[in-house]
């Protein structure tokens, strides 16, 4: 169980204010979607939550402990993170790649244990990559690689999971699978934070949405409260068809808003 509390967080990168006065408390059991236009500061927000970019103001606490006081090793076991962009520098097999997720649990010289192996198998099964275990991850299609990367993050077995654009390059079927998986993780008691671009997926699966625009948190709440046609027009500059009433809510952007 992990609670991440963000208070008046400010981040400046290269003299540009990327995040201003963001405050939010993220609790276990929630699937929190972080949405907003390109360059709004979504990735910076999740990276700052993990201490990967220094805060120029405000602070982040994890279970009441200041982020800056946490050992990297302890943080790694509490919060698993899937960076954007599927970076993998060496041609590792999927199984070897997923096993990297067990690193926070291993001592410097200890060998991978039976429990670690089980966690790897389970993570591969959940992300639907068991059949790819022996394949070289750098030779997979984008969508297959995205799932292998997600399995790597799941293998950490951390009580909190932060994923940056987990749906990029996935086909619709696997998009639904991944969102189902994230929702299940959250409803099992984990805190799951996902940076998303697909507003329909965000509306349908997330318990809570953080809408970021120009470094500010402009809306924070249940999808039906956050995703309104007026707000989408103001933030994304598009007109859209929003239906949050039915059992399967959806958001369809229609055209660039004029003026």
């Amino acid at each position: 169980m992990v609670t991440i509390a963000i208070e008046n967080l400010e981040v400046r990168l290269a003299r540009r204010e990327v995040l201003r006065q963001v405050t939010a408390t993220l609790r276990p059991g929630e699937l929190v979607g972080v949405i907003g236009p390109n360059g709004a500061g979504k990735s910076t927000l999740v990276r700052a939550m993990l201490g990967f970019v220094p805060a120029s103001g405000g602070h982040v606490t994890i279970d009441g402990n200041a982020l800056t006081g946490l050992q990297p090793h302890d943080l790694a076991r509490k919060v698993a993170y899937l960076p954007q962009g599927q970076t993998l520098h060496w041609p590792l097999t999927v199984e070897r790649l997923v096993a990297l997720g067990r690193l926070p649990h291993l001592g410097p010289m200890s060998r991978i244990s039976e429990a670690d192996r089980l966690a790897v198998q389970e993570a591969m099964a959940r992300a639907d990559v068991t059949g790819l275990a022996a394949r070289v991850a750098t030779e997979l299609s984008g969508g297959e690689r995205a799932r292998a990367m997600l399995a790597r993050a799941l293998a950490v077995g951390a009580p909190a999971l932060v994923v940056d654009e987990p749906l990029a390059s996935l086909d619709p079927g696997h998009q639904l699978d991944v969102m189902d998986l994230l929702a299940r993780e959250a409803h099992d008691g984990k805190l799951v934070v996902a940076v998303l671009h697909d507003l329909t997926m965000a509306a349908r699966y997330c318990d809570r949405l953080l809408l970021v625009d120009d470094g500010k948190l402009v809306a924070d709440g249940a999808p039906r409260d956050v995703l309104t046609a007026e707000r989408l027009r103001a933030v994304y500059g598009v007109t859209s068809h929003v239906d949050m009433a039915g059992p399967l809510p959806f958001v369809v952007p229609l055209e660039r808003a004029k003026g």
Binding site: R47, L50, F52, Q71, P72, H73, D74, L75, A76, R77, V79, A80, Y81, P83, G85, T87, L88, H89, W90, L92, L97, L100, G101, L103, P104, L106, P108, R152, V156
Partner: peptide, 23 residues
């Protein structure tokens, strides 16, 4: 030779490595 696994973690890039507890 002290922490060979830090090198493995870096296969995932800097953020990936950091998220696995590498200083």
């Amino acid at each position: 030779l002290a922490h060979p696994r830090a090198l493995d973690a870096l296969s995932l890039g800097e953020d990936g490595a950091r998220s696995l507890g590498v200083d």
